[in-house]
């Protein structure tokens, strides 16, 4: 069973076998499992991952867009970029996070958004590990900026980003499940 408009999700039974583990027709059957409402299990999983990542990126972007000067300070504290690079990144990065967060939420250009997200996660992890290795006592600047931002160990955000990277790679490889408009269409058809 396929979902109208779900062309971004191209999981075939064999691919789903790779997704959930190594080989076997039994695991490949997971790709054909349908949930109540006709949504395939793999599509539901991808949809959850996609919406989760969309929520993460959108919520990360908004405080930075509201206070780019404070975010610039967070970037500055990593001591990895020249001032012009700090300011440019502080202005542009939050909007990139918002754009791909919205695209993921709506299911538009999911693979491209997830590809950018993957790249960002790698960059974030390098910055976090670099700052931690230099003993910097700074706030991550990931979700909060300014004086109220906490200064936990930078290793935890780096580990968290590993999880986000895995999610992003999953979306690049398999797509993000049905886009929002197809879900809405399905809901209206059921009524």
């Amino acid at each position: 069973m396929t979902v109208p408009g779900s062309q971004e999700s191209r999981i075939d039974p064999q691919a789903s076998g790779r997704l959930f583990g190594t080989g076997g027709a039994r695991r490949a059957e997971l790709g054909r499992l349908a949930l109540p409402g006709g949504l395939r299990l793999v599509d539901a999983v991808l949809l959850l991952v996609r919406l989760g990542m969309a929520a993460v990126f959108t919520s990360a972007a908004l405080p930075k867009i509201a206070a780019p000067d404070l975010f610039a300070l967070s970037v500055h504290n990593y001591q990895m970029l020249p001032p012009w690079g700090v300011n440019a990144l502080a202005v542009l990065l939050p909007w990139l996070e918002l754009v791909i967060g919205v695209c993921l939420g709506l299911g538009i250009w999911t693979r491209a958004s997830a590809a950018i997200m993957s790249g960002l996660m790698v960059v974030f992890m390098i910055a976090l590990v670099s700052a931690a290795s230099r003993g910097l006592s700074i706030s991550c600047g990931c979700f909060e900026v300014g004086e109220g931002a906490e200064h936990p160990s930078l290793i935890w955000p780096a580990l968290r980003d590993v999880g986000f990277l895995l999610g992003a790679v999953l979306l690049v490889r398999f797509g993000g499940g049905p886009p929002l408009h197809s879900l809405l269409t399905r809901a209206s058809q059921k009524r």
């Binding site: 909007w95 990139l96 754009v99 791909i100 250009w109």
Partner: peptide, 19 residues
């Protein structure tokens, strides 16, 4: 995919600069 990545980055840059 590459084209879409470029477009998304370009839109983000435009929004950031405009804001």
């Amino acid at each position: 995919l590459a084209m879409q990545v470029v477009v998304l980055v370009a839109v983000s840059v435009a929004l950031g600069m405009a804001s």
